[in-house]
Amino acid sequence: MNDHPVIEVRNVRKSFKAVQAVKGIDLTIPSGQFVALLGPNGAGKTTLVEMVEGIQKPDEGEILIFGKPWKGNEKYLRNLIGLSLQETHFIDKLTTFETLRLFASFFSIGKDRREEVLNMVGLEEKRKAYVVNLSGGQRQRLALGIAILNQPRILLLDEPTTGLDPNARREIWDILLKLKAGRNTSMILTTHYMEEAEQLCDYIVIIDQGRILKEGSLDELLNGLPELPTKPSDTRRATLDDLFTFLTGRHLND
């Protein structure tokens, strides 16, 4: 398992009817790396993650997880992956704990780990609250808790903080930073918040219109900027948004 990169994406293409969502992407993610897929809405981030997740099949190209394709290894790979999707609604009238317990049963996870996760995502006080009564941030933390239940080697998070207020976002980041410190998990996170990518990830991949525009560490990416398209008197630090604007002429959140 250790000889292979955690995730290898080789020249992957995917279309939905007339729309080419992913137009030839290569990406290799080593163990323990936190990768951000940064791009505006409709860039192809979610499609790429869904293919890595094994939910969508690429039209062309290949995706290997720990050197194995999805086909024929589904059961094995599902145990190694944790994920949190955009806008998953759990069952309204189950409590936080019951929801966690349901998902724990799919991985044969015992009591100790369930309690540990409840604690990690800060929902002990809400263990008896129905999911329907949780706030947006609490629901996302529950989704994250479910994603990390099985101590996944790969964590796939699709816009985990979209729609959350800054406090709730910060809480999610704190949980993820703790996980990162453990060095056991590789993560792909899609986001259109550059701050999120900057805070959490070692490696940033900028995607637009189904292609990778640029990739590298934050410093590499920003150093590669020839000149900030701002006034000379502007002394602020260059950001990924500046880079994106430089590359595409548009803003990330457009």
């Binding site: 059961k75 599902r78 145990n79 999707l85 955009q86 998953t88 609604h89 998902f103 991985f107 479910i146």
Partner: peptide
């Protein structure tokens, strides 16, 4: 429609 099925089949369920 709530993507819960999708979330569930992403586990070994």
């Amino acid at each position: 429609s709530k993507k819960l099925l999708r979330r569930m089949v992403a586990t070994p369920m």
